[in-house]
Amino acid sequence: MENIVDPANLVYDKPRLMNDNPMHYCPGCSHGVVHKLVAEVIDEMGLEEKTIGVAPVGCAVFAYNYIDIDWIEAAHGRAPAVATAAKRLNPDKMVFTYQGDGDLAAIGTAETIHACNRGENIVIIFINNAIYGMTGGQMAPTTLMEMATATCPYGRNASLNGYPLKISELLVPVEGTCLIARETVHTAAAVKKAKKMLRKAFENAMAGKGTSVVEFVSTCASGWKMTPDQANQWMVANMLPVYPLGILKEK
């Protein structure tokens, strides 16, 4: 296989830290792309031997199967607490969490806010696809109004379910955060931009500047019951007006 491509002509390669384990993610899922960016940033910054990743409960629970670094699998929502200890006990390490919307913005809201408020020198990578993918498409705290899920089959209704939680906006006034940004990975340009932001976040953590949160507005083609292409289009049309892209805070 290796000989098929002449290294001189190589324009794109799989990140060195990503292994060959078959991914469990569905076609069109954003997780695979974000994983790639994480693996690339760690490798390019030379942090392979210093990095501790904290995996969530949710679709990314198996993140540890795909990126060859040390990983701790946390209980649901507790990744920021787990990362807090890992970083405080090993201040020279690069510690990041990788969490979905249920993990970070529902069951783990307290851990998220307080890790940010203490200004833990970690990176929180937040995958927001507005749905619980792993458990079969139930409502998330970030589910859009009127959006149907397995637990709000007639659409999210404010009187019953409240409103989409804009957790990144909530974290802006929290003193301990130094960078809060919202990205997507649905186009090549977006991927390139997102990677730069992720690298900035990792650099902040190593420089001891405080907590960086990078939210990825993501697709869940299976949960949304769409093709990958439809999912991308739906995300742009419906998610981005509620969760606008860009840097929400930088200091």
């Binding site: 501790i52 904290v54 701790i72 946390a74 209980a75 507790r78 607490a81 787990v82 990362a83 807090t84 200890a85 890992a86 006990l89 090993n90 307290a110 851990e111 307080h114």
Partner: peptide
């Protein structure tokens, strides 16, 4: 809850 998960994280290291 956070405290025991911090213990979990520290113990993992």
């Amino acid at each position: 809850v956070a405290a025991i998960n911090m213990v979990y994280g520290g113990a993992a290291c």
